[in-house]
Amino acid sequence: MATKNDATGTATAVEFNGDTYQVPPAEDWDLDVLEAIDDSKMTLALRALLGDEQYAKFRATNKKVRDLGAFFEAAGKSVGAGNS
């Protein structure tokens, strides 16, 4: 199911560990993000999704593998990725 932001093409604010990140609608994720996920290169996927500035903010406060997985779960839920 598409979210309202998917319909308008605007980024969704994802709150994670006290910070806010802007994530594009799932249908607008760059193919580099999906290829990195397919190749299990999750840090590369996150950098492709967030861009350098937001990625640096994420890395400054999130240091564990579990943080990376939790962020993708939160972002996916926020933008409706994986919903049918």
Rank of each mutant, 00 (worst) to 15 (best):
Y21H: 02
Y21P: 06
Q22L: 13
Q22T: 10
V23T: 02
A26S: 11
A26T: 09
D28V: 05
W29V: 14
W29E: 10
L31V: 15
D32R: 11
D32H: 06
V33M: 05
A36E: 02
A36C: 06
A36H: 05
A36G: 02
I37A: 10
I37Q: 10
D39R: 12
K41S: 09
M42Q: 03
T43P: 11
T43A: 10
L44T: 14
A45L: 06
A45S: 05
R47V: 07
A48D: 05
A48Q: 00
A48W: 02
L49W: 04
L50W: 02
L50S: 01
G51H: 04
D52C: 06
E53L: 11
Y55F: 15
A56L: 10
A56D: 14
K57T: 14
K57F: 03
K57V: 13
K57A: 15
K57R: 09
R59E: 14
N62P: 09
N62T: 14
K63I: 15
K63H: 07
K63N: 10
V65C: 03
V65H: 04
V65S: 09
R66G: 11
R66F: 07
R66E: 14
R66I: 15
D67V: 12
G69P: 05
A70L: 03
A70Y: 00
F72D: 03
E73W: 06
A74Y: 01
G76K: 01
G76S: 08
K77N: 14
K77S: 09
S78V: 08
V79M: 06
V79K: 00
